[in-house]
Amino acid sequence: MKRNKILIAMMVIAVLCTGVLFAGGQQDAAPAADTTSSDAPAQVKVAMLMSGPINDGGWNTSAYEGLTRLRDELGFEIAYTEMVPQSQQKSILRNYAQRGYDLVIGHGFEFGDSIMEVAPEFPDVKFYQVGGEVQADNVGSGVFGLGELSYLAGKLSAKFTKTNKIGFIGAMEIPTTLAEIDMLRETIAEVNPKASFTVAYTGSWTDVNKGKEAALAQIANGVDVIVAIGDACDVGAIQAAKERGAYVIGWSGDFNSLAPDIVLTSMVQSVPDMILMQGKMLKEGNWKGMSKVWGIADGVEYPGTWSKVVPAELKDEVMADFEAMKAGTLHKRVN
């Protein structure tokens, strides 16, 4: 957890200080030190494509952490391309396959179609989609359980709000986000019938300013708790909440370190653990083309660091629901 906080803080500082993000940035990350003999098996090579920057503090930062864990813990050679536009997905996938990478990962729902088109051209290369449900002999995928974390976030926001106005800021109107919104709306209405729920989209996973603008607009209308699923846009929402005295529930990464008194908690989806599991199966020779839903019971989804501003009894109530989901006695998953 500490490592995740430090990485997020460093990455987000880079976003805010540079103010410039380069599209299609391709990097061959430094491989682990070579301690093998000349007759040892060739080093496993893994590449990743991301539609956003590795320093967004959330979805893509966590993917990059997972990639570096393959290098540091398993000795793999790694490479990545960030800020991949949809028009370049297939050419970049092909490029990595042609260069002899054993596993090529598309990080996000948006890579599914491109992976399914390119994969048959390279039957000896394995492809994996994080956040999707594609499958073939050489294609696997993993999607996080939908509904569980949004139920917890909905209950927390509904009981914490003082104005009875809760906001949601998302990047894109995609199926996974819509499923989480549905559970948020349902839970808020059930827990606090007096509360309203406002939804806004920024249209970008990378624009911090758009996240801030959307949050400021909601706060101006009385919203005092915002649930944010927008990668770098979450950073903007946190900035706005910090300036105007509102609160944020983060998503994907653990955002508490950015504003401990503003970020109530974060609904963490541990992409690093999902990616590391793929690497271990690849190394052990038992990787298979399959699609799997990863949820709270698998240990990859959980509330992150809690702010001290959350009353102890409310935190305990939310965590009790989390433990019930983990034990299989409370069912809120919708996929």
Rank of each mutant, 00 (worst) to 15 (best):
M319C: 07
V310A: 01
Q218G: 09
A153K: 05
K194I: 05
K326N: 10
Y64H: 12
M319K: 11
W205Q: 06
I115C: 05
M277K: 09
V15C: 14
G167C: 02
K308S: 15
I92A: 03
A171V: 07
M274P: 03
L149H: 02
E133H: 11
M319Y: 14
A217R: 13
V15H: 09
G75V: 00
K155Q: 05
G108F: 06
N4S: 12
S38F: 15
G253H: 09
V12W: 02
A136K: 01
G289A: 15
Q88N: 11
L7A: 12
P41L: 08
L152W: 08
V12Q: 02
L149E: 09
F144S: 04
Q135V: 13
D261Y: 01
P41F: 13
E317L: 06
K242I: 03
K90L: 06
M10G: 08
D273Y: 11
V130R: 01
T305D: 07
K162H: 04
M48S: 12
L103T: 15
I275H: 03
D234M: 12
S114Q: 06
D124K: 10
S62Y: 15
I238W: 11
G222D: 09
A324E: 12
M277V: 07
V139N: 14
L7D: 08
I115K: 04
L74N: 01
G57S: 00
L93Y: 08
Y128T: 13
I8K: 07
N192G: 00
G142Q: 04
S252G: 12
V84C: 06
D72W: 10
G131R: 06
I229G: 11
T68I: 10
M50C: 13
S270V: 00
M277T: 15
P53N: 05
T206V: 15
S91W: 02
G145T: 02
Y80N: 15
A97S: 13
G25F: 14
A220W: 05
D207M: 14
N95E: 09
L93Q: 03
Y302D: 07
T176I: 03
T265N: 02
F127Q: 04
P41V: 05
L93F: 14
G132L: 06
G154C: 04
K165C: 03
E117Q: 13
D56C: 02
V225G: 03
A23K: 08
Y201C: 06
G131I: 00
E173Q: 11
